[in-house]
Nucleic acid binder design. Structure first.
Lengths: 151, 151
DNA sequence: GGATACCGGACCGGAATGGTGCGGATTGTA
DNA sequence: TACAATCCGCACCATTCCGGTCCGGTATCC
């Protein structure tokens, strides 16, 4: 597993939907239709994404949502962070104090290392890439992630 | 979030505990003491780890557990896979059929890409490294993930 | 044969997640 | 100015999943 929340999955779907039409302002209803996600869920997600600073909202009649930044500058890591909070694999990284095992935690420092790696992996893919049906043939494994991230 | 299950965290703790004493056979009780994890939980985890082929068990009096392979050949990814099943960030990757959004899933192929990256990240750290208080200074971020993976 | 210890389930309570609804605030239009 | 469209924030509920426990069974050693 190690899965992201289903809502986060929907969230990226929404974001890519927005990314396909950067110049338009789409309302929640319209986004629900295009992304095939239930309308109430869409509304909930958009609120979180607004709070996270990833999309901008326009209130009132003919209001709606659009990306706050260019799709090439928004990464999957941004979306995940906005919807699920800071990316931290281990629970321990958060509730600093109450760890009953603290003493024997030689592995803690190593987990952070893994955290960083995962964060990098998620930061390597932008919304613009997600919006494309397939980012090129599918660059083979040997290509370093960091190279992809900076393209 | 994007967190691994707490049990998985404990699981790696157990594995590192075993890694510290490769030649001994430790029983569940003893492992519970050393890892500071509740005994019943330890037992449960060990069952899963055995099933996953990561540890070997000896039954009967003076039985116990030990690593099935050398600590340098067991990665965190192995442990996570044994305890949580195949590493797949998206839920969609599993329940193949019932996706209501299938048509618009241009992003699916891109998620797999991220899956691979995360998998690589987890495969990059071995038990032997986790057992050490700190794997060298902490190789800086600019190092490409894939380079770490193959070291 | 008895004690030790693993094995494979079933089982349960609590938390988190996914999903829904409602009153309120803001903006455009008639 | 009144009304409609639309976002906003919060509270709420049901279900699922997770962490944790227990028990009967089996294998091995003394």
């Amino acid at each position: 597993m190690l899965k992201i929340a289903k809502l986060t999955d929907y969230g990226t779907l929404l974001m890519t939907t927005l990314a396909l039409e950067p110049s338009s302002v789409l309302n929640a209803q319209e986004l629900a239709v295009r992304s095939h996600v239930a309308a109430p869920t869409v509304a909930k997600l958009l609120k979180l994404l607004v709070k996270g600073g990833l999309v901008e909202s326009t209130r009132g009649a003919h209001g709606g949502y659009r990306l706050a930044r260019d799709a090439t500058t928004i990464t999957v890591a941004d979306v995940v962070t906005a919807l699920e909070g800071p990316i931290a694999i281990t629970a321990c990284a958060l509730h600093g104090g109450g760890c009953t095992i603290e003493g024997s935690c030689t592995s803690r420092s190593n987990w952070r290392l893994i955290d960083d790696a995962v964060r990098d992996a998620l930061s390597a893919v932008t919304l613009a890439q997600m919006a494309q049906p397939r980012t090129r043939p599918k660059f083979a494994k040997p290509v370093p992630l960091s190279a992809v991230a900076h393209e």
